[in-house]
Design a protein around this nucleic acid. Sequence first.
DNA 1: ACCACGCAACTTGGCAACAAGATAAGCTTG
DNA 2: CAAGCTTATCTTGTTGCCAAGTTGCGTGGT
Lengths: 238, 238
Amino acid sequence: MLAQNDSKIIDDLLQLIIEGKYKENDRLPSENELAIYYNMPRINVRNALLKLEDMGYIYSKQGKGRFLKPKKHQLELNLTGSKSFTEAMKHAGHDLETQNLGYVKVPYDEKIYSKLQVGQDDEVIKISRLHIVDSQPTALHISYVSKSVFPRIERDGDNIQSMFSYYADQGYTDFSSNKGCVSISFPTSVERALFECAALVPLLVVESDCIEANQNRVLGYTKIIYRSDLFTYVIAED
Amino acid sequence: MLAQNDSKIIDDLLQLIIEGKYKENDRLPSENELAIYYNMPRINVRNALLKLEDMGYIYSKQGKGRFLKPKKHQLELNLTGSKSFTEAMKHAGHDLETQNLGYVKVPYDEKIYSKLQVGQDDEVIKISRLHIVDSQPTALHISYVSKSVFPRIERDGDNIQSMFSYYADQGYTDFSSNKGCVSISFPTSVERALFECAALVPLLVVESDCIEANQNRVLGYTKIIYRSDLFTYVIAED
DNA sequence: ACCACGCAACTTGGCAACAAGATAAGCTTG
DNA sequence: CAAGCTTATCTTGTTGCCAAGTTGCGTGGT
């Protein structure tokens, strides 16, 4: 599909949307109107519009039409900041709720076990929390910790809200998190359900270790998944 | 489209692809095979596969089948680094070529003019360069400078390879770039052609000012657009 | 005059039938 | 026997038709 047949219409509509030519919940031109205007079969127009819907820009109602989805207001997030996500959101005056999604024992996985610097005979627990900012699910924190470092994790797992607080509770007071690797991915259907987002909304994934300062021991490995369309990320010192 | 009919198949295939169950250029199951397996009409399977194609994971050949697209090897890029993109790539031992895509005078735009701190009567020039790393277009640098700060820009515009070098050439030796705002977007058809990428490959956009240290004057405003699937971004000190 | 019903003209949603390209097996012909 | 053509059967690509939901207008009865 080198020369795509629906790229022109996507370009045009996207530009109109980004320029703000449509207001929230405005009706877009119908499939037939666009088909006539661009002189192409309706199915191509339709595919273009479905793509825009999957990207999260518009929604559709059978029998009525297609409409501009209200734009979520953007949160500002400092990727280089030393503040945790929780602190940063609260500091910016947002209403924050954290849902603990429970924990599971993960089967042996080379990448995760080596990140935690534990042997294959150790047990690794995965703890997931969903952060809801101003009633909007925005970030999913997935942390991996080993049972050897946190023996009581299976008792505490369901109640943890912030990993950093838990580390401190367990006696690890001096630790640092090296914000590490950033990548972009698309949501799985589970993530899509949690974030209440469309299928093609890109996610920004930040992976980082948390290292205890004194003994240089790895406390945990955390993957933070952000809905990329809700944030403007900032790279700068605090 | 709350309950999507093609999400299961996308989930499954994406997991198989990411886990590496298919080798490069391996043939995936045909539309009919998947339709029978998932017990859904072929068109739904087809739409799912087209989505994967647009995401850049697979390619198709009429009459033959669908195949796993070879994965580009990932470049490492330090977002917080003080090195310029050019320096960073060369330093990592990559073959780098920069194509100057020419310059144009831009019509008045509030955001750009205010970023450059120039009046509406000033002229602003947009200079675009495409960076090709190991024969692969990877990043697009778009810089805006004003004619009042760089009077000779229209003579030099076509030959600039690196903005930083040009700033230095023009006598501005002490300047700093605050890597600022990061966001994710999708390519326009022009960008898609330049990057030789699929329609739904997310782009990572980094916007930054360059400020002259002595007089605190804004030299230029630069937007760097990266193909997000070619990089693993790193956030850390050099 | 006014209300109710129905029909017509729109909207998006879904799908089946057909077209076109590729490949391999089998038949025909020299 | 071998070369070349045909055909059957795979693959993906395209198109057109009909279903379903919504709205509004017009008509007919009260």
